[in-house]
């Protein structure tokens, strides 16, 4: 079972929901928000293994190259150029797709690994934990996310995604059995919940909503969910206490009042998955 936790908007509490639910349900946790992975700050695992993530990067053998420039023309990302009688590679633009190598008629291009980030594997309180970390200045998160997803072999997983609805979120939720959409009762939260819900819908992933920082304004989210036939698993009330616990990197579960909230959310989530 793989449950993706996402939200159109950043900062709605994806990581709070994913980490606390993981611990409450005894599920494993994977952080696919590789640009800003934060789940490990809360779950504080002992990291037992760290693996470099690489992409394939072309290497050109000048002695075999006949300067036909087929590789330059084949590259859709402008990562190759031909000037001064040689092929130049701009590796940060390379997607590692292999088109240049396939296009080469003389076998002058081979591929070598180029590091773009790493994946950490650890454990905490019996849970398996994985996070992906993108190197600073690397524009493409996709390969790091894919590597994290490869690690999710057996068992139940909560997958923490990046905000938005871009290609990175698509990669992270691809193959998920269920999506949990975290929102907050503000006009921004509503606007971006709609984006997340449409993405889940388009990818054919059954989904439900959790309202974080719940207050007297929850009505705007409930109305949306009713109109769109999406179930609301529950809500997490706002309090300064919760904000403080979060700010210190502590789990909301450490507080008995919030532990009860997550217990209810956990069983409601299981129920929602069963019904989907």
């Amino acid at each position: 079972m793989e449950v993706a936790v996402l939200s159109g908007k950043g900062g709605t509490g994806k990581t709070t929901v994913a980490t606390n639910l993981a611990r409450m349900l005894g599920w494993n946790y994977a952080d696919c928000d590789v640009e800003e992975p934060n789940g490990f700050l809360f779950l504080k695992p002992e990291i037992t293994l760290s693996e470099t993530v690489t992409v394939k990067s072309p290497q050109i053998d000048g002695s075999l190259c006949v300067s036909c420039q087929r590789c330059v023309q084949s590259c859709q990302f402008n990562a190759l150029a031909y000037a001064g009688q040689r092929i130049m590679l701009f590796s940060k633009l390379c997607h590692g797709c292999g088109a240049c190598m396939y296009s080469c008629q003389t076998g002058a291009i081979k591929e070598v690994p180029r590091p773009v980030g790493h994946v950490d594997i650890g454990s905490s309180a019996g849970l398996r934990l994985v996070q992906g970390v993108l190197d600073i200045g690397e524009p493409m998160a996709g390969p790091v996310i894919s590597k994290v997803k490869q690690m999710l072999n057996e068992g139940d997983w909560l997958v923490d995604c990046s905000p938005g609805s871009s290609c990175n979120v698509v990669k992270a939720i691809d193959g998920a059995d269920f999506a949990l959409l975290v929102t907050e009762p503000t006009p921004f939260g509503l606007h971006d919940l709609d984006i997340a819900a449409r993405l889940a819908e388009q990818m054919g992933i059954p989904h439900a909503v959790i309202i974080n920082r719940s207050d007297s304004m929850d009505g705007i989210i409930h109305r949306y969910c009713q109109d769109n036939d999406i179930s609301v698993v529950g809500s997490i009330p706002f309090s300064r206490k919760a904000a403080l616990l979060y700010s210190q990197g502590n789990m909301l579960l450490d507080d008995s009042e919030y532990a009860a909230v997550f217990e209810r959310l956990g069983s409601a989530l299981k129920e929602a998955i069963k019904c989907s």
């Binding site: 990302f77 402008n78 990562a79 150029a81 000037a83 701009f90 633009l93």
Partner: peptide, 11 residues
């Protein structure tokens, strides 16, 4: 070009 506009223009 989405990326590498300068490279494409220089080419």
């Amino acid at each position: 070009s989405a990326h590498g506009a300068g490279i494409a223009a220089a080419q």
